[in-house]
């Protein structure tokens, strides 16, 4: 604990916040480390090769072309042709990406929640599940995430190792709880390890930790 406090004080010194260091030794160390940080910042940055830049700008061009197709369809086709436009989209995009790409075109959180919820009762492929797992990992909106978890509850058999490993990345308590509810009723081999690591995380809500430990004890 004393060392931890000294380390914190050293970093405060390096960051220029304060110089409340308890001892000459700590002060000496802090000065050396501050110089080290300064030296690190002076290391020239490597340049990126032009081919990497070209690749990136090619990506932008492709997306821009696809986007214009989508915008055109949305603006000019009346609602009665919506079914026809979906079929057209299936030719424009890879079939396996149709749910994902339609989702990308949505602009608001309520639209996304509605879209996800309406996938209940539809047949989802493993590609769709991968996409949903990816959304779950990367989206930040808690209500969208909870809706995704609720949807995935009906596809437990298709959830893979990555789903269970991703518990560690989740920081929103209500989403953590929803995920643990899936863990509780699953028999996937990855569950115990994932739960053990998760239950030992710092800053875990007490209810969440209690639930994780409860599931672990009943595994």
């Amino acid at each position: 604990m004393k060392n931890d406090n000294t380390d914190k004080d050293i970093m405060d010194y390096i960051d220029g916040i304060s110089d409340q260091l308890n001892s000459d030794r700590a002060r000496g160390e802090a000065k050396v480390l501050k110089q080290l940080v300064s030296d690190l910042k002076e290391i020239p940055l490597e340049t990126i090769n032009p081919q990497a830049d070209n690749r990136f700008y090619q990506f932008i061009n492709e997306k821009s072309t696809n986007q214009k197709s989508v915008i055109y369809l949305k603006r000019w086709l009346p609602l009665g042709l919506a079914a026809a436009s979906i079929i057209l989209l299936l030719f424009v995009f890879n079939y396996n990406n149709s749910y994902e790409d339609a989702y990308r075109a949505l602009n608001s959180n309520p639209d996304r929640i509605r879209y996800i919820y309406n996938l209940n009762g539809t047949e989802l492929t493993s590609t769709d599940i991968d996409w949903l797992q990816s959304e779950l990992k990367n989206d930040v909106h808690p209500n969208i995430k909870v809706t995704i978890v609720d949807l995935l509850t009906h596809h437990k058999s298709k959830l893979n190792q990555e789903f269970y490993d991703n518990l560690q990345n989740e920081s929103i308590p209500s989403v953590q709880m929803a995920l643990l509810d899936i863990f509780e009723s699953s028999t996937h081999v990855a569950i115990s390890d994932a739960l053990l690591i998760f239950s030992q995380k710092e800053d875990l809500d007490a209810s969440v930790r209690q639930k994780a430990n409860y599931i672990l004890s009943n595994q």
Binding site: D4, D7, M11, Q168, K201, E202, D203
Partner: peptide, 16 residues
């Protein structure tokens, strides 16, 4: 996935 204080400590120890 750690506390802010822990992050400070980890940076310090890595520098050391």
């Amino acid at each position: 996935n750690m506390s802010i204080n822990n992050a400070r400590i980890k940076v310090c120890r890595s520098l050391k």
